[in-house]
Amino acid sequence: MLVEGIKSRPQYPGLIADCYANHHVIAADGDGAQAIIDLFNQHGPQIKGRVTIVYAETLPNSADYTTRLKQLPVEIVHALPTVVTAIRRLTGVLHVARMGTRIYAAGTETMIGLTVQLAQELGMDPQAVLTEHRGTMARRVQCVHCKGFTENVKTNIVKCAHCGANLLVRDHYSKRLAAFQGVCVDAEVPGELPEIVEVFK
């Protein structure tokens, strides 16, 4: 359980335009807005059909991002205050989506992960979601003991927001849960913790 340096992590190859889609649903949070702007700058002419953006304004400068997103040739920008509300709105958008819809996700791993999870729940191939990571490397972590999720984890060890266990954040990620695995780090000798350092910046 003390092992680190394990390999397994989703790949986020970057946004590219799907020139065959007739509806582009783009979810983003924080600096993910810049990835959308870059996408339009580089591939704008290839983006045909409707464009729907769902944006979580999670940063202090997010309102500026929203203004710039609204200047893009898109049908609508849904600006929501948090990732959770953005995902809720995205759910509504995707529930009425039709054949030919392409989903994009940009921003934090949490935003990308929850978007991919939603796509999967709606019966789409999670690998078909185009993704680009921007911003913090903070992780969403599920406690393997109480199953609660702790958001925005920046350190190697984190106290579970639910049961209070000291969790080692493992490099083991579940797309279904959109979370990394957290396992009690001091189960063998309670209180014996490795040095806590910020590793996911």
């Binding site: 359980m1 092992v3 340096g5 394990i6 390999k7 397994s8 599920q142 393997v144 199953k147 493992r170 490099d171 083991h172 990620y173 579940s174 797309k175 279904r176 849960l177 695995q181």
Partner: peptide
């Protein structure tokens, strides 16, 4: 020491990710 609840739905490479 592996969790079905965490690994269910993963592919072969993903669920073996933590093996050194």
């Amino acid at each position: 020491d592996w969790s079905l609840d965490f690994d269910v739905g993963m592919n072969f490479m993903e669920w073996h990710g933590p093996v050194p």
